[in-house]
Amino acid sequence: MSTENRERVLVDADWVEAHLGDPKVVLVEVDEDTAAYDKNHIKGAVRLDWKKDLQDPVRRDFVSKEQFEALLSAKGISNDDTVVLYGGNNNWFASYAYWYFKLYGHGDARLLDGGRKKWELDSRELVEPIDERPATTYTAKDQDRSIRAFRDEVEAAIGQKNLVDVRSPDEYSGKLLAPAHLPQEQSQRPGHIPTAANIPWSQAANDDGTFKSDDELTALYAGKGVDLDKDTIAYCRIGERSAHTWFVLHELLGQPNVKNYDGSWTEWGSLVGVPIAIGEQP
């Protein structure tokens, strides 16, 4: 079952190289450092800016269905295209975009296993020229809220559902407020949501950024006390690393009821009156 899942949602670099000229396969690079694409990218890839393209410029929320349609149309992406997402940071933001594409109902989306890092470490070709794709008329669906969690649902899930905090142990315990490659200037409270298990996203990936095997992944979550028969909500700091874990649980392992809480710690750690746990224990 999950081997089939893997073939449906994950491609390797050889597959991408074999499909570089395929007009129905659209490579989409999504990075935290949005300038990485300008330096170079896989031939033919278009860029999505996770902040400018995928976030509402005023409110903290996603772009609307209509804005998403306009964005994908302008990028030359059609409803029946195979969208292959990849990026830096071990595919954090590519996973986030994958989840976002699924939120708006795109049919065939996949991740490039290992993302940009594995591609670079393998010394595969990256190019500077940007190929424009002709505009399309993309039609999105209404948001699939079965894969997106909001704060009230998260609060109700404490002690009831699986809460998985995928940040690093130092962020979970409250020692750090952000990943260690970012300045620690946030002012919100440190810690984690009570009863959440700390299963860093990185434990689902190898050093080169590829996903571990299904057997390893199943053992990982079971070994950390995640009852896969229950509903699960994953969170991190801003929802990108938890999209990586959402991908593992929902797309690779085929768990039906898994949501990503994109408000994540930057919301929870700023809410008035919600419970917070400090230290290494759930």
């Binding site: 071990n90 690093s168 750090l176 260690a180 490659h181 970012l182």
Partner: peptide
């Protein structure tokens, strides 16, 4: 074109950055 990973005392991944054009990297650790 290198990648530098920051691992904590327990060997757990904490952060990763690609090196700059001049081979440099930086972390804000604890």
């Amino acid at each position: 074109n290198a990648y530098v990973r920051l691992l904590d005392g327990g060997g757990e991944f904490t952060a990763e950055v690609p090196t700059s054009a001049t081979g440099q990297f930086r972390f804000f650790a604890a």
